[in-house]
């Protein structure tokens, strides 16, 4: 060590004039192989292709949606009729979507955040934490139609008869309660994963700073960690909401997929509606499309456009939360 061998740092390989500075892409004669170039070109092309697909979907639905959507459709229930002008709107499907989204996330968000806090901040006993993790991964992997079938078994049981319609001792099992409960399972893994990511990104010394002024773990989680992880919690909630409003299988199997609300007689508002069957926009789009029973494509486009607007609004909301968080700043690592 320490031998006086002068190694010139990064000099041109051949002792001549320094190489011409390349701008952006490397010039010929560089270390770039033909295969690298082809690979990069394919990546570019794929990126452009996906952009084009997204733009095409959104543009097409916007054009069709603006053409066919009338605001009154959101407030007129569907009725039977022989032409598309006579079948009313899809208010029940629209409000059905709002109901399952609200109830689904109202279950998934607190439960998911609670599970994430427990996993990241406590995680004891370790065996239970491992089981919880794999359970949540398993739920994330189960197709929603399977969840729906399982849900019918659960919610048709006599003990849960108060959550749906019961007639002559038979529990119908299909209701907004049941569908929302199962849909919350669809959203739960997304909420948990995103919240965990947010909590794990907080440096350990920030937690310790809170413990070091005499705060308990739970106070630290409530007042410091969860507010700091708010953008990721919001992202998880929005992704979960997107999955809930986009799901069809659970709606068909566990909500009854009726054309209109089917409130339970004799129950008090709003439980008469929540215990009854109903429908959502995704199911309406399916039924109104040429493959469905209604075959009224104009309404299908209008309803699909409403769904698209909802998803775009969710994306915008996530953006706003993230932008606000950037204003508050973060720690240097």
């Amino acid at each position: 060590m320490g031998a006086p061998v002068a190694t010139p740092p990064a000099s041109p390989p051949s002792g001549g004039a320094p190489r011409k500075p390349s701008k952006g892409l490397p010039q010929s004669g560089s270390t770039w192989h033909l295969s690298d170039r082809i690979g990069l070109a394919i990546c570019w092309a794929l990126g452009l292709l996906f952009c084009a697909i997204a733009v095409a979907i959104v543009a097409y639905l916007f054009v069709q949606g603006i053409k066919y959507l009338r605001p009154e459709m959101l407030f007129t229930p569907a009725t039977a009729g022989f032409s598309q002008g006579q079948t009313g709107g899809f208010s029940d499907a629209f409000f059905g979507t709002l109901i399952v989204a609200t109830m689904g996330i109202a279950i998934a968000l607190p439960v998911g955040v609670g599970v994430a806090v427990w996993l990241v901040e406590y995680g004891r006993p370790a065996a239970l934490a491992r089981v919880t993790e794999s359970t949540i991964e398993a739920i994330a992997g189960i197709p929603s139609i399977v969840l729906a079938l399982f849900g019918t078994v659960i919610f048709s049981s006599a003990a849960l008869g108060f959550l749906s319609r019961t007639s002559e001792g038979v529990v119908f099992g299909r209701s907004f309660f049941g569908a929302s409960a199962m849909l919350s399972l669809v959203a739960l893994p997304l909420v948990v994963a995103s919240t965990r990511e947010g909590l794990s990104a907080i440096p350990q010394h920030v937690r310790e700073a809170s413990y070091a002024v005499g705060k308990t773990k739970i106070a630290t989680a409530r007042r410091i960690l969860l507010p700091a992880a708010r953008p990721q919690v919001a992202t998880g909630a929005m992704l979960g909401l997107g999955r809930i409003i986009g799901d069809t299988a659970i709606i068909v199997v566990l909500l009854g997929a009726t054309q209109n609300f089917a409130p339970v007689e004799g129950a008090a508002f709003p439980f008469n509606y929540l215990r009854g069957a109903g429908t959502t926009l995704t199911n309406f789009v399916y039924e109104a499309s040429p493959t469905g029973n209604l075959n009224q494509p104009e309404k299908a486009y209008a309803a699909a456009f409403v769904l698209l607007l909802m998803v775009l609004a969710l994306n915008a909301a996530v953006d706003i939360v993230h932008r606000r968080a950037r204003k508050v700043g973060t720690w240097s690592s």
């Binding site: 010394h205 002024v213 705060k215 007042r223 720690w331 240097s332």
Partner: peptide, 26 residues
């Protein structure tokens, strides 16, 4: 009490950073 190597104010206002310490737990 303790101060750490990395400055680690809590993600709240200057006032609340101190008020958090003065308040009862959460």
């Amino acid at each position: 009490t303790m101060v750490f190597q990395q400055p680690n104010p809590f993600p709240m206002s200057v006032f609340d950073n101190i008020a958090y310490v003065l308040r009862e737990q959460g």
